[in-house]
Design a protein around this nucleic acid. Sequence first.
RNA 1: GGAGGGAUAGCGAAGUGGUUAAACGCGGCAGACUGUAAAUCUGUUCCUUCGGGUUCGAUGGUUCAAAUCCAUCUUCCUCCA
Length: 371
Amino acid sequence: MKIKYELIKKSNETKARTGILHTNHGSFKTPMFMPVGTLANVKTLTAEELKAINCGVILANTYHLWLRPGENIVALAGGLHKFMNYDGPILTDSGGFQVFSLAKKKDITEEGVHFKSHIDGSKLFLTPELSIGIQNKLDSDIAMSFDECPPFPVTREYMTDSVDRTLRWALRGKNVHDNHHQSLFGIVQGGEYADLRRYSALKTVEIGFDGYAIGGTSVGEGKDTMYNMIDYAIDYLPTSKVRYLMGVGDPIDIIEGVIRGVDMFDCVLPTRLARHGNAFTKKGKINIRNAKYKDDFEALDECDCYTCKNYSRAYIRHLIICNETLGGRLLSIHNIRFLIKMTEDIRDAIASDNLLAYKEKFIKEYKNSIV
RNA sequence: GGAGGGAUAGCGAAGUGGUUAAACGCGGCAGACUGUAAAUCUGUUCCUUCGGGUUCGAUGGUUCAAAUCCAUCUUCCUCCA
């Protein structure tokens, strides 16, 4: 069975909407935030802990799992869900972003991308067919098209070629996609160019996918530019399909994305910040390493997560300062829960047509407070 | 009692006449992080009214110039009695 997006309610004050995405591994409400679990694990967390956080779907990575342990091992295990002991929905990213982020020397051709392994420097060649083939074997619920994620900024000429190439790659991927219970998403590119975003959206929809992503975001373009990137494309995506903004996870960006009509987000931010000693709180992001938390025995935030119910700032600070793994774990649990809870509140706000008021209140508290 | 080796910024440790307010590491204090080559990276860490001031166990000396050379003292470590 392919996924099915069920639209529940459209906001009457913004482009936001609530919905439910039905998958073979359960349904989840949207808007939703997806924690990133690149190597078939959300760093430091177990499947049980992710469940307890109430996260609806997680993301894993094609490129990384291709290299280690290899898609055949995952297939032998019975697919990604069994391999990693996670029975909820899983989305796999195509590896397009890895070509952008870790290959300093890459050769992008019509056929695919030549680049070097980040592990041993060996020569690799990734194509749309290969990426989709790997994802078929990984057996995630949602596969992503293999796209080119250009850096920012890039000339209009380059972006024009890139958008067309990504479209051809999307079609090639769709043509070889062979997993009847895995869905496939197309990715809209086009950088900061309004007409190219529109074109990319229209053409991607023309090919036809089970859901649509907006990519090429969060590559250093700045917030306003990123919001524009959404605006330029979103109206050309069908309301009957789910929309996913790739790589975005700053709390305020999530609200701005939802207001613009986005249903799904993913980001390494909550887990990476956690391992680096930072916590999201309603009153802004805090760095738990700061000396002022030395004897602060309060919870991180007013929050229902395991961490906040059981541990103090002073204790977590101590763990982080001492480089104890538990510190990063506890902060990861909290940070993910913070974003998941945020999407729960956002859904409620959409349901009661209070999203703009929610946004105003959230931003006011988040930005203007000194914790 | 004798012989030898040390004493450098919060700690460890380079430096052995000028380019040294003094490498580097740790610790401390802050910052960054947006489809994870990130439990990583960056800045800062004697005082300052930012002009400068005071440092390398202590005191005295040699020199234009000393953490660096000399003398004495204090103190620590190792070995021999």
